[in-house]
Write a protein that binds this DNA or RNA. Structure first.
Lengths: 204, 204
DNA sequence: GAATTCTCCGGCCAGGTGTCAAGTTTTCTG
DNA sequence: CAGAAAACTTGACACCTGGCCGGAGAATTC
């Protein structure tokens, strides 16, 4: 046993490794990211990767879980700051746009992994976990929007998330394909769709 | 030059090859389908694959394009047969459910390829083509639904497709993950969402 | 200061990859 | 039926993959 808290150091190393790996994964995608390529695009040797991770899947799953942590609070600022329903929609749409611009590689990796999980069983559980987290995140936005609009959610969280995720995915693909209008389209779509997610609140 | 129409025979062979390949691709996904595996799961040798296709990408793209042809008319029967708005929704939801049950491998391959196209530029064009075809297919459903409901579409085709595709994707993943309720959830969601896609027609 | 544990390197392996050139069989033509 | 052209098979190639291991070096402990 080492000095202060060796397990923390070990974890810190894993995190650093994972962060490097995430860059490569976001660039090349799951399939074409070899452990060697991941190691090459990092300050680490390929042997050290195996020292900290049992195998490739272990690394990937760790990375995915780590990525989740980044996402979890992304839209909460927009939710907290908004004082009107329209303002919330605008802030939310802006954040969505921003994440596409700034983190396109991470998001395409996410969609890649979710697609892979349809083939690779061992990916399903982490993917499902993240999907639930994203659903909750979206749901917080919807609930707050309903409050501000004096309405109540008209659809279950699962459905609302599925719809918004669908148009977000379109926008990401469009953006990556060089469609300059994709981001503006996304903004318009969010403005169109959000009102559909709520209905006038029932009188009490 | 051969007997009747050698180019037709050549194409027929490519089609047969592609159909075999599609089975393997649907089973293993894009990344893990090697040309040898594809050949092994077919009456062909692995060299003949290369005889008919320049390289792996050529084969994949051909397969994807071929798959598109299968999809194109899938919901048209439901559209043509429906006489009421609710009947159309039910038929549409039923067809969606049916395609998940019967063609889950093909659909997960589609989502796999679409995700890959975010990394691999040469996949973008065929993916975009198919995406447009699917959008048109969905749009025909929406337009007919609006007619039957005495309403008009409330959202652009792109948005309507994105929303429905999102919940379809969720249902597919859920179904593949062994969630027995996924298909019923999809049906309910379609019933919930379709009315949101139209609004009362403007008086003329 | 010696011993032990942890960390890390880099080469090795068996297996799989896409690709292709050289043959072999089949098919059709003259 | 001979011969040419097309269709196909086979085996080999250079390369890359994930996983493994021996041992060097540093850190820590006794």
């Amino acid at each position: 046993m080492a000095r202060a808290n060796p397990v923390d150091k070990h974890d810190a190393r894993r995190r650093a490794l994972a962060d490097s790996a995430l860059r490569t994964l976001g660039e090349l995608g799951y399939a074409r990211s070899s452990l060697r390529e991941i190691a090459n695009n990092s300050p680490f040797s390929h042997g050290v990767v195996h020292y900290y991770f049992a195998d490739k899947l272990d690394l990937i799953v760790y990375c995915v879980r780590r990525y989740k942590a980044v996402c979890v609070t992304r839209y909460d600022g927009a939710v907290a700051g908004a004082t009107t329903a329209d303002g919330l929609v605008a802030a939310f749409a802006g954040k969505l746009r921003e994440t596409i611009v700034e983190e396109a590689p991470m998001h395409r990796l996410w969609y890649d992994l979710r697609a892979q999980s349809m083939f690779e069983e061992s990916l399903r559980e982490p993917v499902e976990q993240i999907d639930r987290t994203l659903e909750e995140m979206v749901w917080r936005v919807v609930v707050r929007y309903a409050e501000l609009a004096g309405a109540e959610p008209a659809l279950p969280p699962h459905t609302a998330y599925g719809m918004l995720d669908g148009i977000f995915q379109q926008a990401l693909l469009g953006h990556l394909s060089g469609d300059g209008a994709a981001l503006d389209t996304l903004r318009d779509e969010v403005h169109d769709v959000m009102p559909l997610l709520v209905r006038a609140a029932a009188r009490i």
